[in-house]
Design a protein around this nucleic acid. Structure first.
Lengths: 339, 339
DNA sequence: TCCAGCACTCTCGCCGACCGAGTGCCAATC
DNA sequence: GATTGGCACTCGGTCGGCGAGAGTGCTGGA
């Protein structure tokens, strides 16, 4: 009983089940794949695979379907990478490069993933905490308040209002702006706290209060967890016939709606190394126990990860195709990003 | 056969069907409502209502359910307004006032509607075309390009890049910024085109090209239809048991995903007068033929509509409750908006 | 104008039978 | 020792028939 053929059988089961989404039996398997053995032999292999917890049968007289563990082995060892076709690559590139601003880039990336994989796409906006500061602007408003605008090098723009002290002249404002911008140059947003502190200290007593207030507002705005944003695309794909879940759509939709928790899951599973896959019950979220999540970080061209994008579908998904799509979009996104 | 009692019967049918979502028969009707007549009489009324196209029966031996036309009559003439409770109102007010910026306001409004109505909420970002300009900022970037940032009085921030001509000094930039801001003060974004034209003409030959470029980028960015944005909340509510659609979720999810078309529908049905309701097949979108849409404009406190928010659910929805919720949130939103 | 009674229709749920797919095991074979 | 053909067995899905229940329309009388 060769170990190698057993894995061939597992691969065949996964591929057939993904395609037909029906439990696959020993006869069908020998008919559709060149295994070179009879159904009876395949049955023996299947018994061993089931013993190992890699496949299971829904009920006694049905064929086998892969378990989460079976998919895991398939993804880790059996799946062959299937790169996208050239036309596909070109389509991604041009579609992304036509974006006019960050909102547009994120929206287009989501649509690409959703369309390429036929599943739900999740795209995170570049995290403020991992971005750099491009420019800080201070604008006095008519109502006597101060508008603080932060522009990151990843293209995000955040704004906050501040109650400005009376007697604020343009000169002071200009100086403040210049100093803060100079101090922040080249730093991550998370590090500007200390840089700003030095600026504040150096200010004259008269303006220190204002400077402190500005520094506080900026750091507060940029470290708030609530400022992490994600966009979902392709939820309509959930209703397609290929997406029947045992428990129905409800737990899945609910899990997707909990954006904070969802983002936490994605963040935890993403490493810097490339595409990560989390299968079925491996997902911490109960609502996603019938789904698999394929994730990759993306970032500026120098390789830093500033955000995450992923595709979510049933555990019975086309892993090679999904992985290829996520990887490709993440790569082009990184190239386009610092628009 | 009194016309009045017939309408009472219709109202009773709508209310019962909305609550139980089961076809309602003549006996149940007399038991649950004080109609003061026997089932047989009710049956006669029902026959008349069916003749008039206001109710229908799914099959011969089943009770009656309202038709779209029946709901329409109910909404227009029979429904009693049911204002929110004080605690609800207070909850809306405080929840909205805790928002830190526009993204947050829109997200919170969506969550409120979704939660109050138990349906899907659609909230449009304040339309750029209907907003005013608060501030225009010009920032030279390290790569020799010019970053144009537009901040509206409704809190939206848009940014675009521009290839800047060489030899651009801070003085020129400052002058340009000051002139544009002065010219735009108090105008709708749609009107600033002509105001900007005057600025451009007044510039020296040397800088006119730059000024024109800036003016063009700004007006282009603000009139693009693609810049209209909407946010969906509560899609998980679609999976609740109360939301069974004949055709399944698919057409609904697909319709919601077509954001441009959806926004067009909402825009068309919204008038300035308050809450508008579109029922079943009245909706242009085929995918929404089993749903009703309840919409209201919202805007700054002076009453101008700058955007739309709405709640979408099955035609069998709690119309009075949904209308009350949409109206209340729109009202408070208008108050909070110019943060 | 209302109402009680009645015959009629149609859906739904239940039951039993049948069919086919797939399995596990065993003895024979390579 | 691995492989294979044969065979008995299990079990879910489908189909037809049947009875119960709900609701209707109609008719004739108050």
């Amino acid at each position: 009983m060769s170990e190698e053929r057993r894995l061939d059988v597992l691969r065949a089961i996964v591929e057939d089940y993904v395609r037909t989404r029906e439990p696959v039996g020993s006869r069908i398997l020998t008919e559709r794949h060149q295994l070179g053995v009879s159904p009876a032999t395949v049955r023996n292999d299947m018994a061993a695979l089931e013993e190992a917890g890699l496949i299971a049968q829904p009920h006694t007289s049905a064929g086998r379907i892969p378990t989460d563990k079976g998919y895991r082995l398939f993804v880790d060892q059996l799946a062959e990478v299937r790169p996208l076709t050239m036309p596909q690559k070109r389509a991604i590139e041009t579609f992304l490069s036509e974006a006019v601003d960050l909102d547009d880039v994120v929206a287009r990336a989501g649509r690409l993933i959703a369309q390429l994989t036929g599943q739900v796409a999740v795209v995170q906006y570049p995290s403020l905490r991992r971005s750099g500061l491009r420019h800080l602007e201070l604008v006095p408003t008519a109502e006597g308040r101060l508008l603080v605008v932060v522009i990151t090098d990843t293209g995000r723009v955040e704004q906050r209002f501040l109650d400005a002290p009376v007697g604020l002249d343009d000169g002071t404002l200009g100086e403040l702006r210049a100093r803060f911008n100079a101090a922040a140059a080249g730093h991550r947003l998370t590090e500007i706290g200390s840089a700003f502190a030095r600026v504040t200290e150096a200010m004259s007593d008269e303006h220190r209060a204002l400077a402190t207030a500005v520094a506080e507002v900026v750091t507060a705005a940029l470290t708030e967890e609530s400022e992490e944003r994600i966009v979902l695309t392709g939820q309509a794909n959930l209703a397609r016939s290929s997406m029947r879940f045992e428990q129905g759509l409800r737990p899945v939709l609910e899990a997707l709606e909990e954006q904070v928790v969802l983002l936490g899951l994605l963040t935890d599973m993403t490493d810097d190394a490339g595409v990560a896959v989390s299968i079925g019950h491996e997902n911490r979220l109960a609502g996603l126990s019938e789904t698999s999540v394929v994730t990759s970080g993306y970032g500026s061209s120098d390789g830093d990860t500033v955000a995450i994008l992923s595709s979510i579908g049933p555990t019975r998904m086309d892993y090679p195709g999904t992985i290829a799509a996520v990887r490709a979009v993440a790569r082009y996104l990184s190239r386009v990003l610092p628009s």
